[in-house]
Write a protein that binds this DNA or RNA. Structure first.
Lengths: 202, 202
DNA sequence: CCTACTTTCGGCACTCGGTGTCATAACCTC
DNA sequence: GAGGTTATGACACCGAGTGCCGAAAGTAGG
């Protein structure tokens, strides 16, 4: 049955990939934690993974991307969750649930995710990349809010930025208090930052 | 009298600097606007400024920094404005006034600032750097709020991120609507995003 | 004017991230 | 085994950024 699955995955045979993005990301993250991000060259990662340096750049467009391998999936979850959100639900509830779902980490991956968050938030080059990656989150959230409240671009943009800000703030708080649950932190920060309609009145 | 000023500026003579960071930043921004950021090499900038490539890196640590030359000054204004904020003022008012003051652009620099904002928000590498630079803003705002509301780290962190998010959102809105005033946009977005104490009540 | 000192300049060589090209390896189906 | 397909990795190349070091261009003092 594994054969059938593989046959369904690849259209027509060719040389099989010697590794996977996920596996390569694990090797890279391990090295980053051991020696530091800047002190680990792509050559080091490639050597540790047993592949050529050129091949690394076929799996990831840049060295930093090795730590954002799962981001595309998370982004897709956010998009699909918002797409199926009930029309009559409060927009803040819809966004909160979607974000929590997209960023949910399986119990077994908790330590791994925590270490990755520590790396990202402590290395400037990774902070910078995080901002670019999360721009995708912001855009999705902004579009969702703009679709609900037509005509108020500023409000939608603010809400989109609030999602980004809450996500970053929550991860920061998480690495400072690893005993707490990321999901609950996310809910708390989103409640603080997602703007209400008509701020002074409501 | 210019002599006296120069004498006061430099401790002891030496070879005079052939240019200034400000002048170099102008040359760089002009080239970035003409050819694009990625298509302009440091060699191009150095040649256009009549200096050596090595000298460019004495004025700016990186190519991207040429567009953030004024950031250090703005940061200092934010810090000093918050330091002199009246104790009894609403924290949101204090932050709003400090941000507006720090980001105030003289009428003559308006077009220049607008072009820079467009560049930064359209080139990924510059977006990334902006996030790193604004981390300084965030830290200052977070410290200010933490000093007022002791014990609520999460609230302070959220407020700090709100300042960053509002600043970015305001600039985005500004380049989309150049006829509006940045100051007013900043006030509106900050009003939306700066969290109130005790979100459900208050 | 010459010397000593100080500071900036800029060339050279180097590392590293990232890319285009291309020959080759390793799989498939017929 | 032949032909097609895909991944690999070696090579050369470019640009960003850095360490090193000699030279330029000012100053102050004799």
């Amino acid at each position: 049955m594994a054969v059938e699955w593989e046959a369904a995955e690849r259209d027509r045979g060719g040389r099989p990939a010697v590794t996977s993005a996920h596996e390569l990301a694990e090797v890279a993250q391990r090295l980053f934690l051991q020696r530091g991000f800047d002190e680990t060259s792509v050559d080091d990662i490639a050597a540790a993974a047993g592949i050529g340096r050129r091949t690394f750049f076929r799996y990831f467009r840049a060295k930093v991307d090795a730590l954002f391998a799962e981001s595309a999936d998370e982004l897709e979850v956010l998009r699909s969750e918002l797409a199926v959100a009930p029309e009559d639900a409060d927009y803040r509830t819809a966004i909160t649930e979607a974000v929590v779902t997209a960023l949910h980490v399986a119990p077994g991956d908790r330590e791994w995710a925590l270490q990755r968050a520590q790396l990202i938030l402590s290395v400037p080059a990774l902070q910078a990349q995080a901002a670019v990656v999360f721009a995708g989150w912001r855009r999705i959230a902004t579009d969702f809010v703009a679709g609900r409240f037509l005509g108020d671009d500023l409000f939608a943009a603010a809400a989109g930025h609030a999602v980004l800000a809450a996500t970053l703030a929550a991860h920061e708080h998480w690495i400072a208090h690893p005993d707490e649950e990321l999901e609950q932190i996310l809910r708390d920060v989103l409640a603080l930052l997602l703007p209400s309609r008509t701020p002074s009145g409501q």
